[in-house]
Computed example of a mutant assay.
Amino acid sequence: MREKIADKKERILKIIEIFGKVYSDADCTLEYDNPLQLLISTQLAAQCTDKRVNIVTKDLYKKYRDVYDFANADELELREDIKSTGFFRNKAKNIIGCCKMLISDYNGEVPREMEDLLKLPGVGRKTANLVRGDYFGIPGIVVDTHATRLSNRLGLTTNKDPKKIEMDLLKLVPEEYQTSFCHQLVYHGREYCPAARPKCDICPISELCPKVGV
């Protein structure tokens, strides 16, 4: 029998309550001091771990201190600076292009609005939602690999497309929990629900999970 939206909402509130206790300190694991750094770090995190990105950006943000430094960077040199994050050619090109557009179109500032963020090279909905939620405090759903896997296993969506998953979760997760819930999914995915061999026997939300596809 197909679960009704109202029942899903009730179930997700129970999950959120448990997550709030188990992952009370869940936050973005990327290290940044301002919205530009968060924007760039999130781009670097594509197909790369946050841990590796934080190692790279520790020196990167000392070398390139603002949007003008990145916009005027030598692309070949920037490639070398970020090489260990993978896909460094495309990332370097996008970062420079992104910062040039920030200067030309947004007075060197990172915009708040989704439509503006999505115009920037290398910025998709995942990056835009993360910057909006974590820096500007605007509710939204960040769909990464953890959110994709867990939202399907939890029976919150049947979609694999990130934008469709985002839209499904927006209907279920109250605005005030959206940003924290996405971080909690990452923590939960790492701790209890990896792609291979999920730890259902000790999972704190096991009784609330239909374990779809497990």
Score class of each variant (00 low, 15 high):
1 M>K: 08
191 E>F: 09
72 N>E: 13
167 M>D: 08
197 R>E: 12
133 G>R: 00
152 N>G: 15
153 R>E: 13
132 R>D: 07
27 D>W: 14
160 K>S: 08
91 K>W: 01
204 P>A: 11
95 I>A: 01
203 C>P: 01
203 C>I: 03
63 K>S: 04
127 T>H: 02
171 K>D: 10
67 V>L: 04
206 S>Y: 07
58 K>Y: 03
7 D>T: 12
165 I>C: 01
56 V>M: 02
116 D>S: 11
22 V>D: 01
68 Y>I: 13
142 V>F: 06
7 D>G: 07
80 E>R: 08
103 I>Q: 07
66 D>L: 06
126 K>L: 07
92 A>I: 08
108 G>Q: 06
65 R>H: 14
195 A>N: 13
152 N>D: 11
154 L>W: 01
193 C>L: 03
120 L>S: 00
119 K>H: 09
51 K>M: 07
98 C>W: 00
147 A>K: 01
208 L>V: 04
35 P>G: 11
171 K>M: 13
198 P>G: 05
170 L>T: 02
18 I>P: 02
16 I>A: 07
109 E>L: 11
155 G>N: 12
73 A>N: 10
43 Q>H: 04
34 N>T: 14
211 K>S: 12
11 R>S: 03
116 D>N: 14
201 D>Q: 11
22 V>S: 03
29 T>H: 14
197 R>C: 05
201 D>A: 14
53 V>L: 09
50 D>I: 09
124 G>D: 12
181 F>E: 01
109 E>N: 05
159 N>P: 09
32 Y>D: 01
38 L>W: 01
31 E>K: 10
153 R>I: 14
8 K>V: 12
11 R>H: 10
177 Y>M: 04
30 L>R: 05
115 E>H: 10
39 L>M: 13
152 N>T: 15
109 E>W: 10
137 G>F: 05
99 C>G: 00
149 R>L: 10
2 R>Q: 09
118 L>H: 08
42 T>P: 02
180 S>G: 15
107 N>Q: 13
2 R>T: 11
25 D>C: 05
25 D>M: 11
34 N>S: 10
133 G>L: 04
52 R>W: 08
51 K>A: 14
177 Y>Q: 03
60 L>M: 03
81 D>N: 07
213 G>I: 09
3 E>R: 15
6 A>F: 04
49 T>Q: 10
65 R>E: 07
94 N>E: 05
137 G>Y: 13
45 A>S: 10
102 L>E: 00
57 T>Y: 00
103 I>N: 06
1 M>Q: 12
196 A>K: 05
195 A>P: 15
172 L>Q: 08
164 K>W: 09
128 A>R: 02
174 P>K: 08
21 K>P: 06
4 K>A: 03
20 G>W: 02
84 S>T: 09
142 V>G: 03
206 S>N: 15
62 K>L: 15
9 K>T: 13
175 E>F: 14
133 G>N: 09
45 A>W: 01
42 T>C: 03
18 I>Q: 06
154 L>D: 00
207 E>G: 07
33 D>I: 11
57 T>F: 04
148 T>W: 07
192 Y>C: 02
115 E>R: 15
57 T>S: 04
158 T>Q: 10
105 D>C: 12
145 T>W: 08
15 I>V: 07
111 P>K: 08
